[in-house]
Design a protein around this nucleic acid. Sequence first.
DNA 1: TTACTTTTGACCTTCATTGACCTTTATTAT
DNA 2: ATAATAAAGGTCAATGAAGGTCAAAAGTAA
Lengths: 156, 156
Amino acid sequence: MVGQNISDIIEAYLKEILAADRQIEINRASIAAQFNCVPSQINYVIKTRFSSQQGYLVESKRGGGGYIRIEKLRYRDQDHYLNQLLALVTAQISFEKAVSILQQLVDNEVLSTHEAQLLATMLTDDAFAVTDQVATDTLRANLLSALLNGLRYQRF
Amino acid sequence: MVGQNISDIIEAYLKEILAADRQIEINRASIAAQFNCVPSQINYVIKTRFSSQQGYLVESKRGGGGYIRIEKLRYRDQDHYLNQLLALVTAQISFEKAVSILQQLVDNEVLSTHEAQLLATMLTDDAFAVTDQVATDTLRANLLSALLNGLRYQRF
DNA sequence: TTACTTTTGACCTTCATTGACCTTTATTAT
DNA sequence: ATAATAAAGGTCAATGAAGGTCAAAAGTAA
């Protein structure tokens, strides 16, 4: 039932291919034609759903024979990977971004879905009964940093 | 007595669907039109009758193709037990006490050892880079309360 | 009355869609 | 080779399409 808009549909389409291939190369115009939208919408989809925050690497080439290549990044070296994620945790962080980081940990099998849910629970605004938004975000960032640091030494 | 006002009627309508499906996705404007009320009344109904305290999870998305999704969470059978633990969480709580509560959750197989470790990580003083000790304990109490509340329901 | 709940609407924020205009790269004609 | 042209993809701002917030007004019950 999720995915009423074109962007969601295109996202799902690309991710389905990525699940099998881990890397795709598309022609912007073709995809746009296929989904009956304007070419720049593809850029929108990529920008909002395939960012490096979300674990994707996007490269492109213009001109004749141009393409857009999307790659789902996978991290073999866990410590290095956690460092990268840690770098994404800015001094203040919104719940949504925090969740997208947890999601990446799930994608890369560092956390189970259930674990991520537990942790997300503790990162909600609700969990901090604080009125000041800046203080809340700062705090959440601290919590998440602590979690990521903890994960690197945790044995399973 | 129940069902006199529009809010009650909308509540009943949504809960009837939820009884069958456990999850619904609605368009705020459509529902509002259907019940001849203003859109923000839907928010009122959700806020007063589908809160997380009442066992519902509500997510929404704005913009084109936006929606409001309501999910009925399953009640845990350890609920009574969780209530007891929740009572132990005072307004402020030390790390040691927090850990002992987590330990009880492990003993009762609500959490795995690893999960407890993850959560403990987020409850350390270190996780809150706050100097004031009272504020820290207050916060930790909030976090732990949120966690315990979250554990009462589990997603499908 | 008084306090609580419901109803309404003005105004706000977020997300999606579109199109005009720009930049880069490859091919083709001279 | 060079210059023109074609063939990509990129940017950005305007517009549209949802849902969110908040406080005032209107009901309701004690």
